[in-house]
Design a protein around this nucleic acid. Sequence first.
DNA 1: CTCACACTTCAACAATTGTTGAATAACGAC
DNA 2: GTCGTTATTCAACAATTGTTGAAGTGTGAG
Lengths: 217, 217
Amino acid sequence: MPKPKKERILEEAERLFAKRGYDGVSLREITNEAGVDVALVKYHFGNKQGLFDELLSRRAKALNRERSDALDAVLERHDPAPVEEVVDAFTHTLLNKVVSEDPSWRSYFGLLAQVNNNPDWGGRAMSKHFDPLVHRFLDALKRALPGCDEADLYWCYHFWSGALTLTFADTRRIDGLSGGLCHSSDFEAVHKRLVPFISAGFRALCQKYEENDREHH
Amino acid sequence: MPKPKKERILEEAERLFAKRGYDGVSLREITNEAGVDVALVKYHFGNKQGLFDELLSRRAKALNRERSDALDAVLERHDPAPVEEVVDAFTHTLLNKVVSEDPSWRSYFGLLAQVNNNPDWGGRAMSKHFDPLVHRFLDALKRALPGCDEADLYWCYHFWSGALTLTFADTRRIDGLSGGLCHSSDFEAVHKRLVPFISAGFRALCQKYEENDREHH
DNA sequence: CTCACACTTCAACAATTGTTGAATAACGAC
DNA sequence: GTCGTTATTCAACAATTGTTGAAGTGTGAG
């Protein structure tokens, strides 16, 4: 049984939109790659925007639950939880999906990178799907960093989000910049480094009082 | 004497490309906003890509010199220089231009954000204009963080670049997320926080031996 | 079989896209 | 003025864009 054509459209659209953005891909390019007729887009998704919205939301729900569960697991062990563990719970899920699981997740995160960096309507689209989850994580971080300024916290998340976004954009710039030492698609390398990098940033800005026990790991 | 039409095209193109990306803006939209004929694009820049390239490079040269000078000033005072000062030299110039100077710089940085996050050709475009400068800064950081792993250093720059990119993309997501506490276009707020955040990240990943004197500022 | 329904194809639409050649205008040098 | 160069306009091009109505195919139930 061949894959249903609706799904073929979604796959190709995800792949192409992730690479060249909403305006950089035409419906015919998608449907040609998928081997289906253009009119199917209207039938299944209404129009181009409907197709894009469907791509955005179809994976968001499962992803949100998974990351929320990861946070729960951390908070169950200790609350307030160390900054590192909260940051890791947020990032771990994403990078694991890219590294080991169904590679189509990689396209999805590429899509999110496009959306998150879109000055026109990206902010609203991201907020619509992910703000509640982000608030859960920021609440946990607030408890981990008592007395911290709320604005500091949000800006830290902003920097964090930017680092993740550029990672998933996968522009291969670091490949040339590093002379082949690093590879833009080496998400394992990112995984190892992003958590300590971001956690240190949070502590530097949001940790008001020095604590004695700084045991991490 | 009214502004030359060539310049009007550049201004509007910069503004629109920054907001909606290369494929999201048509030449006629640019030339209509600028009040000139479409054919002028061919005359002055060859084609659409030529216009975009001109936008990218016309400000890059001056910007590179300015940032290189900022690094020189730091290194003249002390070499190796503290991480904070090197990071600040890189970021300071950008954010100052946005805050105080000619507001058209803001469009230019929005343009850079679009390019830097573009998976298709963004990496090459950024490298072409900015890699030598980035290498200068990374060299200074390498001296500030003796014995550090080179790959770590490049990945730190990657996170840094991502944080800056999302900032200049100006998506207004943080406005809603923070309930109005932060504003995406408040570059002064970013300025205060980005340097300590990124510096702490560099230290966390790249600082091999604890040092006694951690005097900053 | 027949009917209803979901799915798919086909052919075409009006609008917009980047690009272009030829004609026109502005302007300084001589 | 006259000429050469630069700048600008005009009208149009072929191609592609998203979208659409109508026709066609398949399938499963009755």
